[in-house]
């Protein structure tokens, strides 16, 4: 078993590239969906201790979806957490529907669907460009502060390691829409990455 605390530069670079390509494609998908230009921020990879994770996330309530990623053999590769700040999520939902007032159910379902589309294009890209197969689970929706949302995911990872790797990037558009992407890879993904780098 690999401990994420001892990963090399190389593995982290590959992870960053994977996240880069994935979120780039997610940005394209978002741009098509809302018919506007979408910008992507310079992504960051952080290796940190689980106990300090509270400092990594914004303290505000956000709408978010968690998607689990698996490889073909059903080994867990990690989790995608896509966060939509409250205003952005309302705006996306009302833009897509072309009306202002959506009931809660419609709104939540829309955000889940957007999460679905973004995560699918994220996974497609990683398979196309890097031969790393990531199969997304259906999204789970939560409206709360990010730390409270990710802690159940973190608890899964905490069984193997006291450290966590976080790939973060943000998508934004001219119409004040902001979406944050966080990829929390599990050791399974690094085994894939190791295999891939050996072939280079």
């Amino acid at each position: 078993m690999i401990d994420v605390a001892n990963l090399g530069e190389m593995e982290l670079d590959v992870l960053k590239e994977l996240g880069n390509i994935g979120s780039g494609h997610a940005a394209t998908a978002l741009s098509k969906m809302i018919n506007k230009d979408v910008y992507i921020s310079v992504p960051e990879v952080k290796v940190g201790e689980i106990k300090n994770i509270f400092n990594e996330f914004i303290p505000d309530i956000v709408a978010g979806v968690i998607i689990a990623l698996q490889d073909l053999e059903e080994n867990r590769s990690g989790y995608l957490y896509i966060m939509f700040p409250e205003e952005s999520s309302r705006k996306i939902a009302s833009d897509l529907f072309g009306m202002e007032d959506l009931d809660e159910e419609m709104y939540e379902s829309t955000i889940m669907e957007v999460g679905n589309i973004l995560s699918s294009s994220f996974c497609d890209a990683s398979a196309d460009f890097m031969d790393i197969i990531l199969l997304p689970s259906p999204p789970s929706f939560a409206l709360d502060v990010p730390t409270a949302v990710v802690d159940s995911v973190v608890s899964q990872m905490a069984k193997n390691s006291n450290h966590i790797i976080l790939f973060e990037t943000a998508l934004s558009s001219a119409s004040d829409i902001e979406i944050y992407f966080a990829l929390l890879p599990e050791t399974g993904l690094f085994e894939e990455i190791m295999k891939m780098t050996e072939l280079l």
Binding site: M112, P139, S140, F141, A142, A148, V149, S152, V153, Q156
Partner: peptide, 16 residues
């Protein structure tokens, strides 16, 4: 020990 997910598709998240 809350269950913050409203629409839940992953059993492993039920840890609260």
């Amino acid at each position: 020990g809350a269950q913050v997910f409203k629409h839940m598709n992953l059993d492993i998240l039920k840890i609260g």
